[in-house]
Nucleic acid binder design. Sequence first.
DNA 1: CGGAAGATTGAGAGTTCTCAATGCCTGTGG
DNA 2: CCACAGGCATTGAGAACTCTCAATCTTCCG
Lengths: 244, 244
Amino acid sequence: MQQRSIVEASPPHPLLVKLEQHTKLVDVDRDLLSRMLTDIRTFDGRRDIIRVGEDPEFVHLMIEGWSCRYSIVNDGRRQITAFLMPGDFCDAHIVMLGKMDHSIRALGHARVASISRDLMAEVAERPSLTRALWWASLVDEGISRAWLANIGRRNATDRVAHLVCELHARLLSVGMGNDDSFEMPMTQEDLADALGLTSVHINRVLRLLRERGLMTFSNRTMVIQDVEALKREAGFDPRYLHLN
Amino acid sequence: MQQRSIVEASPPHPLLVKLEQHTKLVDVDRDLLSRMLTDIRTFDGRRDIIRVGEDPEFVHLMIEGWSCRYSIVNDGRRQITAFLMPGDFCDAHIVMLGKMDHSIRALGHARVASISRDLMAEVAERPSLTRALWWASLVDEGISRAWLANIGRRNATDRVAHLVCELHARLLSVGMGNDDSFEMPMTQEDLADALGLTSVHINRVLRLLRERGLMTFSNRTMVIQDVEALKREAGFDPRYLHLN
DNA sequence: CGGAAGATTGAGAGTTCTCAATGCCTGTGG
DNA sequence: CCACAGGCATTGAGAACTCTCAATCTTCCG
């Protein structure tokens, strides 16, 4: 019972919060999910979790901290195509596709669960979980499309604002972060590589947003001073996140 | 046998070619797939097949011609997030996600199959088909990431070159197009909206590529004069398409 | 304390955009 | 069969946004 109370005292795991938004899970499902969280590895800043071309033995799931998907284009420049936070799968697709077509790297301190293919097969037996994971994968696809619109059709300031709104909404949806601030281990260069800009320009844009009283980013902490104004600036419409 | 020879004379359906690349299908599967192709609607240029916010009764599948996914950002500008060709599903995800978070529009003359939810449920009963459709959806996700890298980290010329290489490879993979040319109903404005550029700039880039002897686009026909040089220019690495 | 990574700022260059005019092609109605 | 309208393509000129290069400052960590 002590164990139980400790469990109840700590907030529910982001993965659970996320999946239960749209799928009713029963105890069998929860047990299976908790077995996914047993084999956990720690990565410290800027180390690759998986590299392009690999066919990893395990499926990886973010437990704590952040990571990013990225690709290197031919001239050596990097594009970050997703930020992953607790509850996000790194490579559920690898079961189908074989080799990774991009890499995944930890940002700051991160803990990642390794899930054996056998266990994933067990998960696939349960329709409720299959549906839940499929749903999560489709939301990721929606996020990817939203990033395309962001990079393709917004100026630098609005891109930053939009990304911040998204990360804030996603954190809240897994029971993390705070009404008006959150921790974010990215460097300005990471933001640049995610938004199709340079770190120098990101720096100027952050200053502008700070001067306009919209948000402040320093010491790995994002403080949103005026949530509504920031959303308005970014043209942020959260429907693509398919939250409840 | 006459029937047979007619079937053999006409090229196999793009959807079959696509799915059989990675999944062994049996006759039951093929029958089911052919039942998906019975209810076909025709769309003529620039008409929406599905609109953002809708929860369509049918799932849509491209049979002939092209369409695009697109979103409108707050200031009215458009971002195309995917080009769909025969064999591509428009909205398989709608079964899970509910409302559309983007719209889909026909480009030029297009024929689209409407598939009832009942039939989709039947499809979902067959693991081979489920796997095949899931695989297709994951490839779409990979394409989306490749577009992010393209828009975020390549200059205008290389973006156009990369897109052309991709469309060419995808057409070949479903048994369409030609070794060095293909039909493409997009306007220069469509290309611009897909690549995060303006139509004026697309025009200049097309001229440049033409003058350099790499490719020519006119009268809705793309002619690739030097395939290898174009791939080199674009830094095109087709692994993200997961072809065999 | 020293070194390395990251943040900040300035100045000038470059790519892409905007605005605007013109040309081309196609389908339609007289 | 021709004139015309509308959509699309093409070109020029100047403006705007973002990049590059480079120096300096700050923070973090061993």
